[in-house]
Design a protein around this nucleic acid. Sequence first.
DNA 1: CGCCATTTAGAACGATCGTTCAATAAAAAC
DNA 2: GTTTTTATTGAACGATCGTTCTAAATGGCG
Lengths: 193, 193
Amino acid sequence: MPAEKQFDVDKVLDKAMQAFWVHGYEATSMQDLVDCMGVNRGSLYATYGDKHTLFLSALRMYDETVRKKMLAEFEARFTPREAIRRLFLAFSEQASPKGCNRGCFLTNTALELAAHDKEARRIVAEAQTQIEAFFARMIRKGQESGDIARHMDPSKAASGLLASLAGLVVLIRSRPEPALLQAVVDDAIGRLG
Amino acid sequence: MPAEKQFDVDKVLDKAMQAFWVHGYEATSMQDLVDCMGVNRGSLYATYGDKHTLFLSALRMYDETVRKKMLAEFEARFTPREAIRRLFLAFSEQASPKGCNRGCFLTNTALELAAHDKEARRIVAEAQTQIEAFFARMIRKGQESGDIARHMDPSKAASGLLASLAGLVVLIRSRPEPALLQAVVDDAIGRLG
DNA sequence: CGCCATTTAGAACGATCGTTCAATAAAAAC
DNA sequence: GTTTTTATTGAACGATCGTTCTAAATGGCG
């Protein structure tokens, strides 16, 4: 049934993204991917290349369709302070003590691969830099409008918020307790004054 | 050459801990462990059990010999505020833009295994709870002596510091830039008043 | 000195890993 | 309508995975 692809390349890549997101790179086998993507091995290699290349494509897709979209939406729809809060809530509220807590694909990758995989580190670092810039921008805007405290250094506070956000998604995976995550979010937002 | 073990069980377990710490669970093969521990496969299985059991032993060893020791030493030797600062510095100063940044074994495990491995999650969660308790204790003591701001809720602020610390070690692996890590530490300590 | 207990060494196990390939099928090109 | 091109399929590849087992070696004990 050829000459035209029998599947939607992006939709199937999304399946791979989900698998890598939940289980990580090493713990996801090509067999797992064949099963969850619903595409045969040959087509998979012909379309996406080898496992490592496929992983990086999935990571880039997460960065584009999840991270970028999130920041843009919150920045467009809310006040600076509220935009920051929504970003934290987007993670803290996805967590549940029982279910599977996948956290953040970029942060999972930061710890599993970034130390040894140059391209993975580049993607993760670039994404973190943009989140940091988002925080700094929001803080500056909030300071102008008066709903964020004027005494703080926007770029230093942005680094602090980036760490708090990364820490939040770590805790989502190890201690998905609503009260704890809520406390982390409150503490982070509370710093804004 | 038997009847007595030819190697120091704890010293060799330490080698395994280093390997898992740097590369994680899945990316460390039994062959890697045989090589770096300097002990044969048979002896390895007879002494430590299978790979997963060995990993948990290594993780427990990290918790006992690294994490617990660190907290106890800082708590005993420094003022509350300085004890907190030293804990952050212990991580931020180990990072270098060039070298291998292993970060924190417990946090690495939190993201790689905690979501799917019950016992690993238990160990990580317990350690994080104790770090949180350490922060809360230090904050209370600091508030009494006056070098930590009195307006903050100790246990909520402790949760916030725990997230900042976890975030710091995430950034160590993905963006080991001294200026960034310094900013994160300054922001965390700055919150104490 | 000789027997036993235990560790050591490394070969070997089946299973699974990531990857490739030859055969099949169908749309596109002429 | 024939040829060419391309996607699909699933079997098959060698390598490596975690694990087990057998044989050799040594110290403790009678």
